[in-house]
């Protein structure tokens, strides 16, 4: 009986693994498939990867993706952290109202956010392109930063900030020396979350980009509409691997950090 229970448990976990990873595995396998066919395995190859790195347009869109993700998440982290500090000082009711206002774009369907931003850009005669995409990404990234920084600030004892001033620090140096190190993990995870969200986004980018600019996700979409391109499988595989490595690094960093804290 016990054995059967153990088997059921293992079976359940295996099933979950299959559901989660079967699609990605399929993609990875197909990216190494010698033929363009999605149905038949005709031998192992790297040629799609080689073709990928010869494609100027794809490399350009990869560059765009990284720059947009980096700049938008940095700017959003700065704005979001400052907003969190202000919100933390507010009384309960105004803070909750502010929280609601900043949460709405996050809960909103991407397509609504995308179309509204597009309409706004058109109305204000703002030429769609790299800058409009960047602004859009900053906009939807800010709530994620607030969401991870504000709880950290709330945990921080207000007296710590006061104690630093009591010991002679000016308010600014008190913030830099004692509050910032305390909330830094929140700021970092806010930044990483924003970075991931930006990398990930398709819908909002799709509506706010102009004709000439593409990020990886919009590029993949247009390429796939033109026909089967195994280079895209290769690209997706690489993106998956990149995210996987990033995730492992973050988790390891967190684990070692907790160890030193508990020590």
């Amino acid at each position: 009986m016990v054995r059967f229970g153990k088997f059921l448990k293992g079976f359940y976990v295996a099933l979950m693994g299959i559901f989660l990873y079967a699609p990605i595995l399929t993609l990875i396998v197909l990216s190494f498939n010698a033929s363009k066919s999605r149905a038949k395995w005709s031998g192992f190859t790297f040629k799609w990867y080689a073709a990928l790195f010869e494609n100027e347009a794809i490399l350009q869109s990869l560059w765009n993706t990284i720059i947009i993700a980096l700049v938008s998440s940095l700017v959003a982290t700065l704005i979001g952290t400052m907003a969190s500090i202000a919100m933390n000082r507010m009384k309960k009711l105004p803070r909750q109202v502010m929280m609601g206002i900043t949460n709405i774009p996050m809960l909103n369907a991407d397509i609504v956010t995308g179309i509204s931003l597009m309409l706004l850009f058109i109305m204000t005669d703002f030429a769609p392109g790299f800058t409009s995409v960047l602004l859009a990404h900053i906009t939807f990234n800010i709530p994620y930063v607030i969401l991870s920084v504000l709880p950290k600030l709330k945990q921080t004892d207000r007296n710590v900030f006061e104690a630093a001033q009591d010991l002679g620090a000016t308010p600014i140096s008190a913030f830099m020396k004692v509050v910032l190190p305390d909330i830094f993990p929140g700021i970092l995870s806010g930044f990483l979350l924003a970075f991931t969200m930006s990398l990930d986004d398709f819908v909002i980018t799709h509506f706010t980009k102009g004709a000439g600019v593409d990020t990886i996700s919009t590029k993949v979409y247009t390429e796939l509409r033109k026909g089967i391109k195994p280079e895209m499988y290769a690209l997706s595989t690489l993106m998956f691997a990149a995210v996987l490595i990033l995730l492992v690094l973050i988790n390891r960093r967190r684990a070692t950090h907790e160890q030193t804290v508990n020590h």
Binding site: V160, E162, A163, K177, V178, P181, D182
Partner: peptide, 11 residues
Amino acid sequence: TVFQKYALFTH
């Protein structure tokens, strides 16, 4: 000042 919850700098 010595604060109620110590307010030490934990880092």
